[in-house]
Amino acid sequence: KKYKIKVYVKDKKTKKWKKIKEIEVDTKEEALEAIKKLPPNYEVKIVP
């Protein structure tokens, strides 16, 4: 079972969220580790 991490950042001009990358991992633990490495201003969604 794979997890997709969708990473969004808020556009300063439009104030809208835009997706900047998608990370695919195998476990939820890996997903949480990957999220920890991202800057705090990123919004993250984990999709099972």
Rank of each mutant, 00 (worst) to 15 (best):
K1C: 05
K1G: 12
K1Q: 11
K1A: 12
K2P: 08
Y3R: 01
K4F: 09
K4W: 05
K4A: 07
K4M: 14
I5A: 01
I5D: 00
I5C: 04
K6L: 15
K6T: 12
K6C: 07
K6M: 15
V7C: 08
V7N: 00
Y8T: 00
Y8D: 00
V9N: 05
K10F: 11
K10C: 10
D11K: 04
K12P: 14
K12L: 14
K13I: 14
T14Q: 05
T14G: 08
K16H: 06
K16T: 06
W17Y: 12
W17G: 01
W17T: 02
W17S: 02
W17I: 03
K18Q: 09
K19Y: 12
K19M: 12
I20P: 00
I20E: 03
I20K: 07
E22K: 01
E22C: 02
E22L: 04
I23E: 03
I23P: 00
E24A: 12
E24P: 07
E24K: 06
V25C: 07
D26M: 07
D26L: 09
D26G: 09
T27R: 02
T27W: 02
T27K: 02
T27C: 02
K28V: 11
K28A: 09
E30G: 06
E30A: 09
E30W: 01
A31C: 15
A31R: 01
L32V: 12
L32D: 11
E33K: 09
E33H: 08
E33F: 03
A34C: 09
A34D: 02
A34S: 06
A34V: 14
I35T: 05
I35M: 08
I35D: 00
I35C: 03
K36D: 06
K37H: 13
K37N: 10
K37R: 15
K37F: 07
P39Q: 04
P39L: 07
P40D: 09
P40F: 06
N41T: 15
N41H: 15
Y42A: 09
Y42S: 10
E43W: 14
K45F: 06
I46Q: 01
I46M: 09
V47I: 13
V47G: 06
P48K: 13
P48L: 15
P48S: 14
